[in-house]
C-alpha cells in the first residue's frame, strides 16, 4: 500500500496490482479500466495534496529567514513605508557597516566561539572520563553514584539559575581559584556551569558499555593502564559518538541566552545572543541592523549545517533517542 501510494514508482503500482491479480478477462472489461484510472487518479491527487502541504511547511520554516534579506538591505525607516518595498530600490550595506563600526559584533562572535567551544571541549573531556568510569571501572558505590547523577537529569536548568549564579559569584570571591580566573564576567565562570548536564555522561556510558568487554580485558592483560585503554582503544572506537555529543553540546551552548545574560552581562564577555538582544532597544530599534545581525549570525551556521547535516540531525536526535 505504501508502495502503491508512490505514483512515480511504476513497479510499485504493478506489484500492488499483482497482489490483487484480476483475471485477464476482467482486465479487458470497461469497468476495470475505469476503476484502474480512478485508482491512479486518487493516488496522484493524494500525492499532490501531500506535497502541497509539505511545501507550505517548508515555506513556513525557511521563509522567515529568507525574508530577512530584504530588511537587512534597506534602511530601517523605509520599513514603515506604505506601500511596502519588499525588493529595495537601492540596496544598501549600511546596516552591516553599522554592525561592525558601532557595535561590538565581532567581539560578541569571538566570545560565543570561546564560550561554545570551551563548553564543548570541557564537557566532552569530563563526560568521557566519567562515562568510562561508570561503564568499565569497578569501584564500591558505583551504582549509587550513577543513580545520583542520573536523578539530576530532569532538573530544569532555569530552576537552578539563581543558585548557580550565586555559586559562581561566591567562588569568584575566593582567593587563588577566584578572579581573574573564575567568577561572574569571566570565561570560565561562563563556561563551567554549562558543562554539568548528566546527559553527556549518560550517553558516553551507554556508548562505552556497548563496546565488547573483551577488548577492554584484552588491553588490560596486554599491560595497558586505564588511561591508555581509554585513549588508545575506547576513544578511537567511539569517535562518532564523540562528534555527535560535541555538536549537540555546541548547538545547545551557543544558543543559550539566559545563562550568559546573568553570568556575563559585562561588555567584554558578552556573547552573540545577549549582544543581539541588546540591539533591540527600549525605545528605538534599528530594525535593519537587527535583520543584518540575525542574517550574519545564521549564515556561517547554515553553511556548516549543509556540509554536516547528517551529523546535526543525529546529534539532535541523540539527546532524545539515546535514553
Amino acid at each position: 500500500m505504501f508502495l502503491a501510494f508512490r505514483p512515480w514508482k511504476k513497479e510499485g503500482k504493478l506489484n500492488y496490482m499483482d497482489a490483487v491479480r484480476p483475471k485477464e478477462s476482467l482486465k479487458s472489461s470497461p469497468s476495470y479500466a475505469r476503476g484502474k484510472s480512478r485508482y491512479i487518479f486518487a493516488n496522484r491527487f493524494r500525492a499532490l495534496f501531500a506535497y502541497l502541504v509539505l511545501l507550505f511547511f517548508v515555506a513556513f520554516a525557511v521563509g522567515p529567514v529568507l525574508y530577512l534579506i530584504s530588511p537587512a538591505l534597506r534602511d530601517s525607516i523605509s520599513l514603515f513605508d506604505y506601500p511596502p518595498k519588499i525588493i529595495p530600490d537601492e540596496p544598501t550595506l549600511d546596516n552591516f557597516r553599522f554592525l561592525f563600526d558601532s557595535t561590538r559584533y565581532l567581539s560578541w562572535a569571538l566570545n560565543t566561539i570561546i564560550y561554545a567551544a570551551g563548553t564543548t571541549i570541557i564537557s566532552l573531556f569530563t563526560n568521557v572520563l566519567a562515562g568510562y568510569a561508570f561503564a568499565r571501572l569497578q569501584f564500591p558505590g558505583r551504582n549509587l553514584l550513577f543513580f545520583l547523577v542520573l536523578s539530576t537529569l530532569m532538573v530544569p536548568v532555569a530552576a537552578v539559575l539563581a543558585p548557580t549564579y550565586l555559586m559562581v559569584r561566591e567562588i569568584g570571591e575566593l582567593p587563588i581559584i577566584g578572579r581573574p580566573f573564575f567568577g561572574l564576567d569571566t570565561y570560565l565562570g561562563l563556561i563551567l556551569p554549562c558543562t554539568v548536564s548528566p546527559l553527556g555522561v549518560f550517553m558516553m556510558r551507554q556508548f562505552i558499555s556497548t563496546l565488547p568487554v573483551g577488548l577492554y580485558e584484552a588491553a588490560r592483560l596486554d599491560g595497558a593502564s586505564e588511561w591508555r585503554i581509554l585513549f588508545k582503544i575506547v576513544l578511537p572506537l567511539i569517535k562518532p559518538a564523540l562528534v555527535v555529543l560535541g555538536i549537540f553540546v555546541f548547538m545547545i551552548t551557543w544558543a543559550n541566552f539566559l545563562w550568559p545574560l546573568v553570568a556575563a552581562s559585562g561588555d567584554d564577555y558578552r556573547v552573540l545572543t545577549v549582544g543581539i538582544a541588546s540591539l533591540k532597544g527600549q525605545f528605538v530599534t534599528h530594525w535593519g541592523v537587527l535583520a543584518a545581525a540575525s542574517l550574519m549570525t545564521l549564515i556561517p551556521v547554515t553553511i556548516v549545517f549543509l556540509f554536516f547535516q547528517k551529523w546535526f540531525v543525529q546529534a539532535s536526535m541523540a539527546g532524545a533517542l539515546k535514553q
Binding site: 509539505l54 517548508v58 522567515p64 529567514v65 525574508y67 530577512l68 547535516q309
Partner: peptide
Amino acid sequence: FKVTLYFPLLAPPILGAMIWHF
C-alpha cells in the same frame, strides 16, 4: 524536507524571536 524543516533549529531561540518580529 528533512533538511528544510530542521533548518530553523539552527537559530537560537532569541534569533527566532527577532526573525519573527519581521
